[in-house]
Amino acid sequence: MKRNVIFTENAPKPIGPYSQAILVENPDKLLVISGQIPINPETGEIVKGDIREQARQAIENLIAILEAAGATVDDVIKVTVYLRDMKDFEDFNKVYEEYFGHSKPARAVIEVSDLPKGVKIEIEAIAAFE
């Protein structure tokens, strides 16, 4: 499988830990991960706290699903993030960069009016791998 970062000067440069686009040639497997919210899988409880704590748990949940399928963060090609408050973007982005800063999948961040169980964040992803 070939994973290529697409970049053109004819579109805006990325302003964070993401790429304009990712081109994947001949993936053997395509994994579509449903939105993950900050639920602690051991307790079933929502992680209380600020956006950083909630983002970290949502990403850890996403990583657990990737690993269960035989994939890694490096296989993620697209991430969609839903935030209840765009004012949390900078703090969220710092946590996100810890996990995805080296692989920089394509990404969209969207502010929404509400999320399940009143959480601050939900993250879904697509991965392609061999």
Rank of each mutant, 00 (worst) to 15 (best):
Q20V: 05
A21M: 04
V24G: 09
V24I: 15
K29Q: 14
L30S: 12
L31R: 12
L31G: 06
V32W: 05
S34I: 09
G35H: 11
G35R: 12
N40H: 10
P41Y: 13
P41A: 06
E42Y: 12
E42I: 09
E42S: 14
T43D: 11
G44L: 12
G44Y: 12
I46Y: 12
I46H: 09
V47H: 10
K48E: 10
R52D: 07
E53V: 00
Q54H: 08
A55D: 07
R56F: 05
I59C: 01
I59H: 02
I63M: 09
A64E: 13
I65Y: 06
I65L: 11
I65W: 06
L66M: 06
A68P: 03
A69L: 04
G70Q: 02
T72S: 15
D74R: 09
D74C: 04
D75K: 04
V76G: 00
I77L: 04
K78P: 00
K78N: 14
V79K: 03
T80V: 10
V81S: 03
Y82N: 01
L83F: 10
M86P: 01
M86C: 01
K87Y: 11
K87P: 00
K87A: 05
F89Y: 15
V95G: 10
V95I: 15
V95M: 04
V95P: 07
V95C: 11
E97S: 15
G101V: 01
H102C: 05
S103G: 02
P105L: 02
A106G: 08
A106W: 02
R107T: 03
R107N: 06
A108N: 04
V109T: 13
D114P: 00
K117L: 10
G118E: 08
K120I: 05
I123E: 01
I126R: 05
I126N: 02
